[in-house]
Simulated scan of single mutants.
Amino acid sequence: MADTNRIMKELREIASDAASGVTVSQHGDSLTHMKGTICGPSDTVYEGGVFHIDIQIGQSYPFEPPKMKFLTKVWHPNVSSASGAICLDVLKDQWSPALTLKTALLSCQALLAAPEPDDPQDAVVAKMYTSERAKFDETAKEWTKKFATKEQKDPIVGELMEMGFDESMVLKALTKCGGDKNRALEELLGGA
């Protein structure tokens, strides 16, 4: 059985660290299926993008890594442009129980900044990255603009922001309330 106390502690830590640029929200009351969000790293072709990641937590967590895949389409050698599957060592054989959801998401963010074309998830993208870098950069920027800009954000986040709340406050409230829009709205209205 997954360690629910540890997962809740991790979620509280993520919620209290808005500066990290990562958030996690639950799907309903489940601690086994969540959605993470990372910001595209500065000074990269992904800058300005907001990327959503599906997180599945198995029964053996934290002794096995969470299963993660990009929900947001991203043009990257280590992410499948079709399925969002991620080729990242900490999500496979380099996982350690000392790592957390936050470190896994930060590793995904770091991967965006430092692709590993020699260990690709998407061979077509990796080939473009190594042989046609300018074309790769242009395509990655286009995909970021088309699929990961603020306009493409999570619909719940957008709804709450349309009510006049700041995005960081919305994300913090959603994380604290497990992704439940109504509870997050109560949290925001309560000034917490």
Rank of each mutant, 00 (worst) to 15 (best):
T32V: 09
M34P: 12
F51M: 03
I38S: 04
A2H: 08
L106E: 03
A134R: 02
H33L: 12
L71M: 12
A123H: 08
L160D: 08
G28V: 02
V90L: 07
P97Y: 00
T130M: 11
V50I: 09
T23S: 15
K9G: 12
K150M: 13
L112W: 02
C87G: 01
A140I: 08
A110K: 06
C108H: 03
S25D: 14
L99W: 02
I14F: 05
E186T: 13
N78V: 00
V50W: 02
I7K: 08
G28E: 05
L11P: 01
S60K: 09
A104S: 07
T144P: 06
V45T: 12
M161D: 07
Y46K: 06
F70Y: 02
A126K: 01
V45C: 13
S83N: 10
V170K: 00
M34L: 11
K172S: 09
A113L: 14
K73P: 15
L31S: 01
A104P: 02
L189R: 12
M34R: 10
K73V: 11
S107Y: 05
C108N: 04
P115S: 10
W95A: 00
P65D: 04
V90Q: 06
P66G: 05
L105C: 07
A184P: 15
V22L: 07
S42A: 14
M34W: 06
F63W: 08
V170W: 00
W75E: 07
F70S: 00
K35Q: 14
T4G: 12
G190H: 01
G40A: 09
E142Y: 12
K135E: 12
A192P: 10
L112E: 05
T4V: 15
L189Q: 13
A104L: 04
Y46I: 12
N182L: 15
D154F: 03
K92M: 06
Q109S: 09
T100A: 06
E187V: 13
R183L: 14
L174H: 01
A19P: 01
T32Q: 14
V45S: 13
A184Q: 11
E132T: 06
